[in-house]
Design a protein around this nucleic acid. Structure first.
Length: 341
DNA sequence: AGTATGCAAATAAGG
DNA sequence: CCCTTATTTGCATAC
């Protein structure tokens, strides 16, 4: 069974798909991704031909050398995540990470008219995001309650949301079945919620960043903080539909909690709980990035040992380097693909 | 000084 | 453990 995947030579196809939520700003990013500039990197293969090779060779040599030099200790330079083992146990309890919400995939429904009444688009979404048979039914994103592990569990229920699928013969939608999944995933509902959310947030005199960091105070199992960016994107509906669905209950919980707290005017200053932290993102500095690119030029798929050597040389965590290569390969494929068109 | 966004790390899930 | 693919976020910085 896994054959399914084969379908997408590259599902990250360049075509701009789903403008998710039509109006509101144009989600430039989606479009941007779609359009893939496919620029540099390879650009200089010819331009700086020898230079690149040279650099690559040099880089490799360096790695070999490095294998002997054992550094006394390597500081955790960048910010890193608490990901793998070696982290200084700030709080050992950390399982892995956090809130990543829903992951399902959002089928790129190719065709799909740009404009068309948003009503139509919305309906499509409506019909598409549903429990489909097999799903635990109860709720899709709503009840993030999850034992512990990240919310991943609640994910994958939406799995392949069918592009479209008209309603049933006769709307038995209003079934007895409890579920309100439809309500929760209804784009219109999400849209209005996002709007209400923003208004109420402002009324509370709280910034997006405040909301993000306050989320940890909710102490919801797999939920940690979120960045201002994410809150912003939620409000502007620039997140994927599934992501919106997953985040909604969390933000809703925060909103209610915040309003309640204000009512009691005993706004606790409790800023941030030691609970889950937000995902951290390592910033790889330009020099290191250049080195990595040089290595990549000669060997896009370095062995684990090589990666470790590179990591040490650049003073980065091994996992960071490994992931960098993975992402780099991904990027390259994307570029190659889009270059074909 | 808040809020958008571009770019790309980090993650999730199936192999 | 590592890879790939698809996605979710966040750092930086533009607005």
């Amino acid at each position: 069974m896994m054959s399914m995947n084969s379908k997408q030579a590259f599902s990250m196809h360049p075509i701009l798909h789903e403008p998710k939520y039509p109006h509101l700003h144009t989600s430039s990013e989606a479009i941007r991704r779609a359009c893939l500039p496919a620029p540099q990197i390879q650009g200089n293969i010819f331009a700086g031909f020898d230079e690149t090779l040279l650099r690559g060779a040099e880089a490799l040599a360096a790695v070999d050398i490095v294998s002997q030099k054992t550094h006394p200790f390597k500081p955790d330079a960048t910010y890193h995540t608490m990901s793998s083992v070696s982290c200084t146990p700030t709080s050992s309890s950390v399982h892995l990470h956090h809130p990543s919400v829903l992951t399902t995939h959002h089928p790129h429904h190719h065709h799909h008219q740009p404009a068309q009444g948003l009503e139509g688009e919305l309906l499509d979404h409506l019909n598409s995001a549903l429990p489909l048979g097999g799903v635990p039914g109860p709720d899709v994103g709503s009840t993030p309650s999850h034992p512990h592990s990240h919310m991943s569990a609640i994910n994958h229920m939406a799995h392949h949301s069918q592009p479209m699928n008209m309603s049933h013969p006769h709307g038995l939608a209003s079934h007895a079945v409890i579920s309100g999944p439809e309500t929760e995933t209804d784009p219109r509902e999400l849209e209005s919620f996002a709007e209400r959310f923003k208004q109420r947030r402002i009324k509370l005199g709280v910034t997006q960043a405040d909301v993000g960091s306050a989320l940890a105070n909710l102490k919801i199992p797999g939920v940690g903080c979120l960045s201002q960016s994410t809150i912003c994107r939620f409000e502007s509906l620039t997140l994927s539909h599934n992501n919106m669905v997953a985040l909604k209950p969390i933000l809703e919980a925060w909103l209610e909690e915040a309003e309640r707290a204000q009512r009691e005017k005993m706004t606790k200053p409790e800023i941030y709980t030691g609970g889950d932290k937000k995902r951290k993102r390592t910033s790889i500095a330009a020099p290191e990035k250049r080195s990595l690119e040089a290595y990549f030029a000669v060997q896009p798929r370095p062995s684990s040992e090589k990666i470790a050597a590179i990591a040490e040389k650049l003073d980065l965590k091994k996992n960071v380097v490994r992931v960098w290569f993975c992402n780099q390969r991904q990027k390259q494929k994307r570029m190659k693909f889009s270059a074909t068109y």
